[in-house]
């Protein structure tokens, strides 16, 4: 249920409950950490460029984890990088969301068997909200992932942690 289908009881007052308001505010301004890992990052950049325009969903890159709300894990997570990703994740203030983009971040991708240096899925170190399959996923797929994340945020509750 959207915020603005609530009735307008007075000239410039909108009646809504706090939960809806908070969720609407959060899902409309998911600021992602400006952060890319491999070829998926190229697709992510294409998604944020003018042709697909991430910004119309309120998603803009932010250059410090302390002011970001989400990370898109866009690429192969090496063991070396995994330690850094964990630290970045811990520096993001709550509430924070993770989109795992592409086969490598989901489960290791083509490196699943012989990748001695690859973490087989970023969900081994941080909790993932949305998995976007593909190698790499097209911008449409990433947009779909973002819409799924927004749906998830819309149904969050203040009383219980999701």
């Amino acid at each position: 249920m959207g915020l603005l289908d609530k009735e307008f009881s007075d000239g410039n007052i909108v009646v809504a409950n706090v939960e809806d308001l908070l969720n609407w505010a959060r899902l409309s301004s998911v600021w992602q950490l400006g952060f890319g890992l491999a070829c998926c990052a190229i697709e992510m950049m294409a998604t944020s460029a003018s042709h697909y325009d991430f910004d119309r969903f309120g998603l803009i890159p932010r250059n410090t984890p302390r002011q970001a709300d989400a990370i898109i894990i866009s690429g192969t997570v090496t063991l070396k990088m995994a330690i850094r990703i964990k630290r970045l994740y811990e520096q993001i203030p709550d509430p924070k969301y993770i989109i795992s983009m592409g086969s490598c971040a989901n489960c290791g991708g083509p490196y699943w068997e012989h990748g001695y240096h690859v973490l087989k899925g970023v969900d081994r170190i941080i909790p993932v909200d949305v998995y976007v399959p593909g190698c790499p996923p097209r911008p449409e797929a990433l947009l779909e992932g973002l819409l799924k994340l927004q749906e998830k945020i819309r149904n969050e509750s203040l009383r219980k942690k999701s």
Partner: peptide, 20 residues
Amino acid sequence: FPLRKDFKVPEFYQGMKIPY
């Protein structure tokens, strides 16, 4: 040394499981 032919992947690195 990973590119030696008798290299075996370690189970864990810094608490992270390496094999699939």
